[in-house]
Amino acid sequence: MGGRESDLVLLNSDGIRCDGRKIDEPRRISIKAGVLNNANGSAYIEFGDNKILAGVFGPRDVHPKHQSDSNTGILRVRYHMQPYSVPERKRPAPSRREIEISKVIKEALLPAVILESFPRTAVDVYIEILQADGGSRCAALDVAAVALADAGIPMRDMVSACAAGKVADTIVLDINNEEDQAGQADMPIAVMPNSGQITLLQLDGILSTSEYKKCIETGLVGCKLVYELQKKALKERYFGGQGS
């Protein structure tokens, strides 16, 4: 697996990547909580060139009723890309990829969310990709976790996600769109930062055992950086930037 043929220099001899970053440097990340008035919780993230909005409703009545569970609440996630989020217009109907990402995000959030407190209800997470760059599933997961906390949904821990990958035979943190297309491997990771439990781990590409270990370690460093920014966004929203 060598990625796509490209003239792009993904990593130069000085260890600088195609967008000017070092190998262990994430893209610029900013998160803001509570950006929508009508949702119960919301957040907005800019993760490199990704621009993503998340809104949470619930816990609320389940419709259709047959989905409701008398022992616990249910979590429903919709990851959706706007038609203008990519250079070629994307058809707005859910694609195979969007359905898959909705599923993996839901499964990555489930261990953190305490749904047992709200039997017979649903928590709905709507994620809109306004502008897509590489690593949108991780950014979507980050913003969804902040929106859930903003909605006051009880959580065992936050969920922070970041990708690592292999580019020009080197393990790098937070791969962008070009590196995703032309690189050798992409590994999105999500973790519950306080407990250290990994809730999402995917790998597209081939890595040796040592590369695999290094890739996870690198990704977890990125998750930790994201976690600090998630906390900062919530502190700004609720404590005016204060907080212990």
């Binding site: 009880p154 959580m155 065992r156 936050m158 306080n194 407990s195 404590f239 907080g243 212990s244």
Partner: peptide, 24 residues
Amino acid sequence: PNMVMPGDVITREARRAGQNVVLK
């Protein structure tokens, strides 16, 4: 701590977990 986020450890002392607190 006075102000907390989901997942923040409040204490390791032997106390009872009240509202919005989980024992881990």
